[in-house]
Design a protein around this nucleic acid. Sequence first.
DNA 1: CGTTACGCTTACGTTAACGTCAATCTCAGG
DNA 2: CCTGAGATTGACGTTAACGTAAGCGTAACG
Lengths: 131, 131
Amino acid sequence: MDEETYTISELCAEFEVTPRTLRFYESKELISPQRIGQRRLYSRKDRARLKLILRGKRFGFALEEIRQLLELYHMGDQQLTQLERTYALAQQHLSEMEEKRRELDQAIDDLKVQMRWCEDKVATLKKGSAA
Amino acid sequence: MDEETYTISELCAEFEVTPRTLRFYESKELISPQRIGQRRLYSRKDRARLKLILRGKRFGFALEEIRQLLELYHMGDQQLTQLERTYALAQQHLSEMEEKRRELDQAIDDLKVQMRWCEDKVATLKKGSAA
DNA sequence: CGTTACGCTTACGTTAACGTCAATCTCAGG
DNA sequence: CCTGAGATTGACGTTAACGTAAGCGTAACG
C-alpha cells in the first residue's frame, strides 16, 4: 500500500486554495483528514475527494450537493438497501449532468453563431473602409 | 415587427423567478426593460437576455461575468476596434466553455464507472443472499 | 367609492462560502 | 533556550444573490 500523505499547505499549493478553505470543507464534513497530534494529515483519498469537490464547484454545485455526490464515491460496506438507494441517487445526478451537457453544447453553439456574425461584420467594415 | 411584451409577473411565471430577482438583475444592469409610467415592460429581447442569464447561472457563472457575456449578444452599431475587442473576449469565453465541457464529460464518465461498480456489488450481494 | 390585485421603491435581513485577524501551540534549527 | 515557520482554534467580517417586510401608487372591478 502506497501511503502518500500531504500537509495542509502542500494540498493548498497544489489546488490553489487556502488552508481556511480546507478547514471549512472539513467543518462541513466534506473531507476528514487524519490528525497527527493536532495537525491535519491528508491521504490520497482526501486528495481525490478535494478534486471532486473543486470540480463540482466549477459546475455550480453547492457544497451541500457535493457532499451528497461524494457519498457515491465513498460506498464502503453498505447494506443492499442502502446501496440501491445510493444507486438511484446516482442515476438522478447522472441525468442532471447529461442535461447540463446538452445545455452547455447549446450555449457553445449559440456563441459560435454570434462569433460568425461578428466576423462577417468585421469583414464588411474592413471592405467598406478600403473603398 | 412583432411587438410582444411581458409584464414582470408574466416573465416571472415563465422562468420561475421572483420579481425581486428581475429587479435585482436590472439594478446590476443585466436587463433594462422599458417603463410605462413607473411599471416595467419587458420586450422579446429582454426575455432572451433573461434566458441567457439563467443559463449562465446554471453553469456557475457570476452575474458580473454574465453581464460581460451578454455584451456579445448585444453588438449593435459598434466601431471596428470595439467589435474586435468583443470578438477576442468571445474567443476566450468559448475556450473556457469548451474546457468546461471536457471536464463535464470527464465527470460523467467517472460517475458511470462508479455506477457500474455499484451494480456489480448489488449483483454479488443478491447472489450471496440467494445461497 | 372602497377594496383587491399588481407594481414600485427603500431598506434591512439572510445564506453560502469563504477572508481576516488574534491568540496559542509546536517543533526543528542555530 | 530563543526564534521563526507552519499549524490550530475561535470569532468576527465580507461579498454575492437574493428574501422579506413596510409603505405607497394606481387601476380595474363590483
